[in-house]
Design a protein around this nucleic acid. Structure first.
Lengths: 127, 127
DNA sequence: TGAATTGTATAGTGTCTGCGAACACACGAC
DNA sequence: GTCGTGTGTTCGCAGACACTATACAATTCA
């Protein structure tokens, strides 16, 4: 399970990790029932403390994507987040699109990029 | 200038504010040369300390969108952020799209939403 | 020049992040 | 059943960060 941490990213590390795993789940690269790697292993790979990884797993559990079982491991349980307002979802999308525009990309190029990303997102997915 | 703070949003308040203003600039609702409202006024409107607003303005200045002048006010100077890697821009977009998918929206609906947002983004814009 | 307006600096308080070490649960071997 | 190994959890701490209150400084304009 390949995850990378971005030092420049101002989100806390545990949330970066949670987000990356969310992406893997969304793409179907981590299917329901799959075990996530042990927190110690991920911590070792990334050079972090195991508690940082554990925090990421709890984050995912809180959103209903993962079930963490004390002593047994963490498992993907769903490909659906429990609940999230449509408005919040749009807000994040709107913000990322605004940033593309502020970077100077023309509308056509933004549309191209978005289409590429959507295609990637649904490449593996069965749904 | 209408800005709202989302208590549930885990980004710090000053960055929420900066992001909202960035959106306004990206859409052309705040044109170059326009003065931002004084930090005290925004602080009063939102029930925050003026330093929080000042932090948001500095954030925008750091990205090259705004020029803050001591004693005179803050002004929109550009509709282009100074520099940002293509990879970072895509990362944010990818994440927001993944969240839409995790919310259970089918591909067609995601595409519809994205198109709506892109249209909104370029509604006023001259570029 | 002086009052009003605008951003800045500094210090204090509480929260959040990430870490280290010790703890507790699960599961398979025997 | 029990023990060893593997797995997550708890607790406490240090440092960084977010937000506030208050005092300061630059600008503008009558």
């Amino acid at each position: 399970m390949y995850i990378t941490i971005d030092e420049a990213d101002r989100r806390p590390v545990y949330r970066q990790i949670a987000d990356e795993i969310k992406g893997l789940i969304a793409r179907g690269e981590l299917e329901e029932g799959t075990a996530l790697p042990p927190v110690r292993q991920v911590a070792l790979d990334l050079g972090l403390n195991l508690n940082t990884i554990a925090a990421a797993y709890r984050e995912l559990q809180k959103e209903g994507l993962v079930r963490v079982r004390h002593g047994a491991g963490a498992f993907v349980t769903s490909r659906r987040v429990s609940q999230q307002g449509d408005a919040d979802l749009r807000k994040a999308l709107r913000s990322s699109l605004a940033h593309l525009a502020l970077a100077g990309l023309p509308r056509t190029e933004i549309q191209t990029i978005v289409n590429e990303e959507i295609q990637q997102l649904f490449r593996v997915r069965s749904q």
